[in-house]
Design a protein around this nucleic acid. Structure first.
Lengths: 211, 211
DNA sequence: TCAAAAAAAGAACGTTCGATTGTTTCTGCA
DNA sequence: TGCAGAAACAATCGAACGTTCTTTTTTTGA
């Protein structure tokens, strides 16, 4: 046997990509063997090398494409929004829905950064910084307008992103709550946390100072 | 050469444990080879088996011990606190400080659960559930007393835990902000997010309903 | 003092890994 | 219809993996 009847390069490439996402999500990049991947697609392991240079570049392609998609879509989602409050709600809603819909890709992009070799990792980290920078700018704009109270926009950005991204650690589509309901719950948490002038700070008596 | 001069079992066991945490933290469990670990400690790889049954049980020991330590300390931290607000602040502060101080252990316990074989994973997940359950109970108590407004304590628990735990993705001891300052920032975010009756919900017009 | 116990070396095992190569079969276009 | 190129197989490589076993050296305690 050699070339399989009905085989098609483009279709196989897509199948490999999808199986790669699935197996890396399930087992982790290191733990996924190329023989396992080949079997999932219905190939011999050697045949995979028609479709990528090596295992590392498969991972990088998956992560890079995901990050590009994420950035393109968040730009769309924020397009119509102007006020910081609007933009914050749009960002939070988008982030949550995207992460609930594409859990595997997101999980890989977050967990397997360590498995990327240095040059690739640097590229991905830069893309992530850009995506997260959007939120930081929204917070800063809100502070400037006086609608948010955030002493450290950078830290709050990290905190909020972590909170939102964490949803793909437990969300299941068949779960009790719908995506809409979850978006509302999380949005309330976030907007409440950054809202201006509603609560005394935890630092009420003492002053924020350097260590 | 065989037994090394000055060698001591207890000391070696501790060195292996520490090196294991360090290497798993840095490279991941799958990516860490036992030869690498042995070299770090100054042994031959075969000699490691005096100290554990296999690679898997090394990971499990590290994670289990960490979870037990975490639970014991949070119980201490909450000991004197009675009101939901007090207990929430104590929980948040404890969680952050613990995670900033023992980043490697925490990271391993969160990231390498997938590398645990089924029985071990189940045990660890149960321990985590118990730890997180503490926060959920605090939120429910606050709702019952009317000091918190949380429609879904379970979801909010996940959200808050994710936010807090995320700190060990970027915190560096030599960073600009002290642990105390960070605790204040995060505590404000959390308490603001769950505070009762200060903000209209994102669901203001429509009603929360099942999907 | 000397034998038992402890600690580690070191060699080897079978397996699996990512990757390479040469060959065979199928497809699509001129 | 025939052939160039695409697609996949099959066999294999060397390296690295976790693990086991035997041997050697050091320490310890009666």
């Amino acid at each position: 046997m050699a070339r399989t009847v009905g085989s098609n390069g483009a279709r196989t490439a897509e199948a490999i990509r999808q199986a790669g996402v699935k197996l890396i999500y399930r087992h982790g990049y290191e733990a996924m063997s190329l023989r396992q991947l080949a079997a999932e697609v219905g190939l011999q392991s050697g045949s995979l090398y028609k479709y990528f240079d090596n295992k590392q570049s498969l991972l990088f392609d998956i992560v890079r494409d995901h990050m590009e998609d994420l950035q393109a879509r968040v730009d769309e989602a924020l397009a119509g929004c102007t006020t910081p409050t609007e933009r914050l709600r749009a960002y939070v809603g988008f982030h949550l829905r995207y992460h609930m819909t594409r859990m595997a890709h997101v999980f890989i992009a977050n967990m397997e950064i360590r498995s990327l070799e240095e040059a690739h990792r640097a590229e991905v980290v830069a893309m992530r910084r850009r995506y997260e920078g959007l939120l930081e700018e929204i917070l800063r704009a809100g502070v400037a307008e006086g609608v948010f109270k955030v002493t450290e926009p950078r830290v709050s950005t990290y905190a909020i992103i972590s909170m939102l991204t964490g949803i793909c650690m437990w969300y299941r589509p068949e779960g009790r709550l719908s995506q809409d309901e979850l978006v509302i719950i999380y949005t309330d948490l976030v907007t409440g946390g950054v809202a201006a002038g509603v609560l005394p700070t935890a630092a009420a008596p003492r002053q924020l100072k350097r260590a």
